[in-house]
Amino acid sequence: MSHSITLACLWAITATVTAMLPSRDHHWRAAYLLIAAGIPILGWVTYENGPWVGLIVLAAGASILRWPLIYLWRWVRRKTVR
């Protein structure tokens, strides 16, 4: 297993453990940190293993961070519907 895939798996484990911990801000601070760390990891995985593996890792990250994506989608729709 390549180093980038190993790091992506560690990112997923960290995200899962973070979601299990109690939080006063509903995990938004952790989500911002996970997004900031996940984007370079996703680029590295895609560079080392190709676009198909990169898409799989992107789908896994999107399933973990689905609420920020839902809120982003709602914001974009509000801005473009006017």
Rank of each mutant, 00 (worst) to 15 (best):
M1C: 03
M1E: 01
S2T: 15
S4Y: 01
I5M: 09
L7R: 11
L7D: 10
A8G: 05
C9K: 09
L10D: 10
L10E: 12
W11M: 06
W11I: 07
A12F: 13
I13L: 14
T14H: 12
T14K: 13
T14F: 11
T14Q: 14
A15I: 04
A15M: 01
T16R: 03
V17L: 15
A19D: 10
A19C: 04
M20S: 10
M20C: 11
M20H: 02
L21N: 06
L21H: 05
L21I: 07
P22Y: 06
P22G: 04
P22T: 04
S23A: 14
R24F: 12
D25R: 05
D25P: 03
H26R: 14
H27K: 12
H27R: 13
W28C: 05
R29I: 04
R29P: 00
R29C: 01
A30M: 12
Y32H: 10
Y32V: 11
L33K: 13
I35A: 13
I35Y: 08
A36P: 04
A36V: 14
A36T: 10
G38P: 05
I39H: 00
I39K: 02
G43C: 15
W44R: 06
W44D: 04
T46Q: 08
T46W: 09
Y47I: 06
E48K: 12
E48S: 09
N49A: 14
G50I: 05
G50A: 07
P51A: 14
P51I: 13
P51D: 07
W52D: 10
W52E: 13
W52V: 08
V53L: 10
G54H: 01
G54E: 02
L55H: 11
L55G: 13
V57L: 02
A59I: 05
A59S: 12
A60C: 14
G61K: 01
L65N: 03
R66A: 14
R66D: 13
R66H: 15
R66Y: 15
I70D: 07
Y71G: 00
W73Q: 10
W73M: 13
R74G: 00
W75V: 04
W75F: 13
W75K: 11
W75T: 11
V76K: 09
V76Y: 07
R77F: 01
R77H: 04
R78G: 02
R78I: 02
R78Y: 06
R78T: 05
K79V: 11
T80F: 08
V81R: 09
V81W: 00
R82C: 00
R82M: 01
R82H: 05
